[in-house]
């Protein structure tokens, strides 16, 4: 039987490419029309591009329904802005909270005084970070960078080698990125990417997954990730 996966449509960018990519992985994507409709979903995908403030349209009712399903063990995949929304928030829209399923808040990749500018080795680069970059899976887990009060605890819970989302994806594989803000490396990080600074490009904890890049536009890397998500959902 084909697994039904709910897509959260909050109007940020188009869903066409995401739905095409999911279908190719054997997933039957359905655009969720109400918080209640999430109850039937075997998996949930939060796609999205654009400004963090676009997530404000996801009301408290949606948030509660989503968190209830995630707590019940339903796999959740956030893509690009959808992944950033899984963090505590973003300096792009300071008044809007994220879901706080991952620690830290998202910051500009190229702004004076930002978290990333303070990380060692920072170099000013063009943004948006637009194009194909490498998704690195450090062999001995991922080392976070503790600056100020970003993290109290930096021990990675998930080793890249155990990642279900990245199964069969080689370290250094190319993926397509299109973003200006990014999530700091933290406990949920299973892969990183460097553009000016090093940021979290894949996160994973239990049934919560996120990719900063667009699997739907990432050719064979993206196809492998959607296939892995389909496997997690189908379980």
């Amino acid at each position: 039987m084909t697994a039904t996966v709910a897509l959260i449509d909050y109007g940020a960018g188009n869903l066409t490419s995401v739905m095409r990519g999911l279908r190719r992985a054997g997933i039957d994507p359905v655009v969720a029309t109400s918080p209640a409709s999430l109850a039937d979903a075997a998996g949930i995908v939060v796609p999205g591009v654009g400004h963090f403030s676009a997530t404000a349209i996801i009301s408290d009712a949606w948030r509660e329904a989503l968190l209830a399903r995630v707590t019940a063990g339903v796999p959740l995949l956030g893509i690009c802005l959808g992944m950033q929304w899984l963090f505590e928030g973003s300096t792009e829209a300071p008044g809007i909270p994220g879901l706080a399923l991952a620690q830290g808040s998202c910051q500009s990749l190229n702004k004076a005084g930002s978290y990333f500018e303070l990380t060692p080795g920072f170099v000013s680069v063009k943004i948006p970070h637009l194009g194909w970059n490498r998704v690195e899976q450090p062999r001995d887990g991922v080392q976070g960078i503790n600056i100020g009060s970003q993290f109290a605890e930096l021990t990675p819970d998930v080793d890249s080698r155990d990642s279900r989302l990245l199964a069969g994806v080689e370290s250094g594989a190319f993926a397509y990125f299109a973003h200006s803000f990014a999530a700091p490396v933290g406990p949920e990080t299973v892969a990183t990417t460097t553009h000016g600074a090093t940021f979290a490009s894949v996160i994973e904890r239990d049934n919560v997954f996120g990719t900063q890049f667009h699997p739907e536009l990432s050719s064979e890397t993206g196809a492998a990730i959607f296939a892995n998500f389909a496997r997690v959902v189908g379980r």
């Binding site: 680069v125 970070h129 970059n133 490498r134 990417t193 553009h195």
Partner: peptide
């Protein structure tokens, strides 16, 4: 390393 972003064709 500043970026591993590739040049696009």
């Amino acid at each position: 390393m500043s970026s591993q972003l590739t040049r696009r064709i």
